[in-house]
Amino acid sequence: MRPMIAATLAAATLLSACTNPTGFGPGSGAAGAPGAQGVAGGIVPGSASDPASAAYFQQTVGDRVLFAVDQSTLSGEARTALTRQARWLQQNPGFTAVIEGHADEQGTREYNLALGARRAAAAQEFLVSQGIASSRLRTVTYGKERPLEICSSEACYAQNRRAVTVLAGGVGSV
């Protein structure tokens, strides 16, 4: 039952992707905000209970990796998370993704844009090394423009130094 739904969804995704000539949706500035899907009992297509949904990818697979101060090197934890992302992307070939690189507020605007680009690229390269076609992945840097957490201490900064894989083209994608 479940694989069938997944296959159907994938097909629908491919069709919808075709209507978008670049295959990429606009970058979502609000990415990372938890989805507002109501999860009730059975599998609702597109909801977080649907393993082929963007919401599932975001909440269950895990859509983000975190970085140390000033770094774009992937930690062991980040590699594990990206390996999970790669496996999911292989199982759901209808999806493309934009990887958003972010920085915390320490640092100038320009440097943080460049740093965010590095982080997004590090995540992208790892996914490609795991067999994901680079044509399905695009990167964008937000620098320090879109903090997730807004306090001015390391507790928040640690959450803001991130690369977030934002799916495009799938049913239920945000």
Partner: peptide, 9 residues
């Protein structure tokens, strides 16, 4: 200007 490609600026 700065141009970022493949993570390098």
């Amino acid at each position: 200007y700065s141009l970022s490609s493949g993570g390098n600026t």
